[in-house]
Simulated assay, not measured.
Amino acid sequence: MQTIAERLESARAEIVQATASAHRPSNSVKLLAVSKTKPVSDIMAAYEAGQRSFGENYVQEGVEKVQQLSDLTDIDWHMIGPIQSNKTKVVAEHFDWVQSVDREKIARRLNDQRPAHMAPLNVCIQLNIDDEASKAGIAVEQLDGLVNFINLQPRLQLRGIMAIPKANPSGEQQAKTLSTLAELFAQYHTSLSNFDTLSVGMSSDIHQAIKHGSTMVRIGTAIFGKR
């Protein structure tokens, strides 16, 4: 039975391999450890093995973990799940990143409720890149409007795009989706100074995601085991 530290090392090695295969710089892809439904003890095991960025899907569970580990000030906490309007305040008060912004109302509330003593909240816009009814996120044609809106919010820092592509796509479909994401990211990366994050890729598609320019991959089960 592998430990969390051993599985984490395997995940890092796979990222290094995929990055090298894509002829990209060795430090150009960040690992986000998705710790949803996992106990604080598992997060501590990953932390002790050097992991500093953790992703949570559920607001209340995530906030409780942030509070329990508040003495570890070098952790970056990412909210990657959907957020209801009545949960924006606690998210704005506790998280460092929100990757799942998909409408102006949520962006406005996160901005207005971000405490003045904290740094601006890093946000990514979630794209529903394959137009799946079961998934959150905006359509590509809505992206420009939301980018412009977020850039007007003083307590938010727009960092990039997040997407969850279709599961089990054909090779052709996968390449098309990831290429579209790469093109959109490049467009805004060129024109906006802090737009540096393309959050796409999980255990099943990490190599293709990195090949197409992902700067952050989200890995959960391969590090923490099945839920």
Rank of each mutant, 00 (worst) to 15 (best):
M1R: 10
T3Q: 14
L8M: 08
A11S: 15
R12V: 05
A13G: 12
I15D: 01
V16T: 15
V16E: 14
A18W: 01
H23T: 12
H23K: 15
P25E: 11
P25L: 13
P25M: 11
S26D: 12
S28A: 14
T37D: 07
T37W: 00
S41P: 13
I43N: 06
I43E: 07
R52L: 13
F54M: 10
N57R: 11
N57E: 09
V59C: 05
Q60H: 13
E61N: 05
V63M: 00
K65C: 11
K65P: 06
V66F: 03
V66E: 01
Q67P: 03
Q68H: 08
S70Y: 04
T73M: 02
I75P: 06
W77T: 10
H78I: 15
M79D: 11
I80A: 09
P82F: 08
I83D: 02
S85K: 10
S85V: 00
V90H: 06
V98Q: 03
Q99G: 03
S100R: 03
R108F: 06
R109E: 12
R109F: 02
R114P: 08
M118H: 08
A119I: 00
V123M: 03
Q126V: 01
N128F: 11
D130E: 09
E132V: 11
S134E: 14
V140G: 04
V140A: 10
E141Y: 09
Q142H: 14
G145C: 01
N148R: 14
I150M: 08
P154N: 12
P154Q: 07
G160H: 05
M162P: 02
M162G: 01
I164L: 12
P165A: 05
K166D: 09
N168W: 01
P169H: 01
S170H: 06
G171W: 04
E172V: 08
Q174S: 08
A175V: 09
K176G: 01
E183T: 14
A186D: 10
H189M: 07
H189D: 08
S191D: 04
L192D: 04
L198T: 12
V200S: 02
M202R: 11
S203R: 07
H207F: 08
Q208W: 00
A209R: 01
I210C: 11
I210R: 02
K211Q: 12
T215V: 07
M216K: 01
V217H: 08
V217P: 07
R218S: 09
A222G: 00
